[in-house]
């Protein structure tokens, strides 16, 4: 593919996003991997040995897809939102506004930047999970549907990057960002089926969980890796793609109408 001059602003911003998170690699890549490793060790290995799932599936195998998707979603969201917030604080956002960067270019560059970080952390989480899985089972966990797995990770990561962009543009203070992280993202992720199966819930809570879009992202990844999940593949794929379209629309409107002046 030929790179035309009109693509250069977008590619530069995407490259800048990657350079940005690599500059603080301990905070952006290594710390999330350590926390995922601890989840795997404590929940997957220690407690997991005492948890029996239907069909003889080990709890560690059940947990790995959820944790991979959780890593992708969390890090995609954090990357795009922190990029905009630090840009608002330092004045970088003004730079983006006064150069020939279209709203669509900003949206895709930031989203792909977030997705890249999310995929790196997700891949590392998967690798750490493989180590634990091999130690426990003397075999690796081979994903059943590699293409689908990649698709769900892409859709989830892009959606949450776009969500992060919307929240960061809307935010007026750092409190707004951390508030959404603590009161919206975290509950959605933890109640989205990372650690539990819908089958083990009371019907009422099953209903509540089904209203959580993250359930479909996580179960999509679980199906792709294990070949089984709490929701059908068609439903998981439909809800995930619909979420992406929704988050894309919201983020584009926010970028077009948002304030680029500094805090």
């Amino acid at each position: 593919m030929t790179i035309t001059p009109s693509m250069r602003p977008f590619l530069t911003l995407y490259y800048r996003e990657i350079r940005r998170f690599l500059k603080v690699i301990v905070q952006t890549i290594l710390a999330p991997i350590v926390s995922s490793g601890l989840y795997l060790l404590i929940f997957g290995v220690s407690l997991g040995e005492r948890i029996n799932l239907e069909g003889g599936l080990s709890y560690l195998a059940f947990l790995i897809p959820g944790l991979v998707m959780m890593s992708v979603l969390n890090n995609s969201y954090q990357n795009s939102s922190s990029s905009i917030v630090s840009g608002k604080f330092g004045g970088d956002l003004e730079d983006w506004k006064v150069v020939p960067l279209s709203p669509t270019a900003i949206l895709w560059a930031l989203s792909l930047g977030g997705l890249t970080r999310g995929l790196i952390v997700g891949l590392m989480t998967f690798s750490v999970g493989q180590v634990f899985f091999y130690v426990m089972n003397q075999q690796f966990l081979i994903p059943e549907h590699l293409g689908l797995l990649f698709l769900f990770l892409m859709v989830g990561g892009l959606s949450f990057s776009m969500f992060g962009i919307s929240i960061a543009f809307w935010a007026k203070t750092f409190d707004h960002i951390s508030g959404v992280g603590s009161f919206v993202i975290l509950p959605l992720i933890y109640l989205g089926g990372v650690f539990f199966s819908l089958d083990g819930l009371h019907p009422y809570w099953q209903l509540v969980s089904k209203a959580n879009p993250l359930l479909y992202f996580i179960n999509g990844v679980r199906y792709s890796m294990l070949g089984e999940s709490d929701v059908s593949l068609a439903v998981a794929l439909s809800v995930s793609c619909a979420s992406l379209v929704l988050f894309y629309g919201i983020a584009l409107v926010v970028i077009k109408r948002g304030q680029y002046v500094r805090w």
Binding site: L13, R19, R20, V24, G90, E94, V98
Partner: peptide, 29 residues
């Protein structure tokens, strides 16, 4: 070309990197 009144604090990057990025934003590699 725009020189704003207030200083921009690009926290993460060096002087040369900032110029390289800005050049790229303006389609110049």
């Amino acid at each position: 070309g725009y020189v704003p009144q207030e200083i921009i604090n690009h926290g993460y990057f060096t002087v040369e990197e900032i110029l390289v990025f800005h050049s790229g934003f303006l389609k110049t590699w």
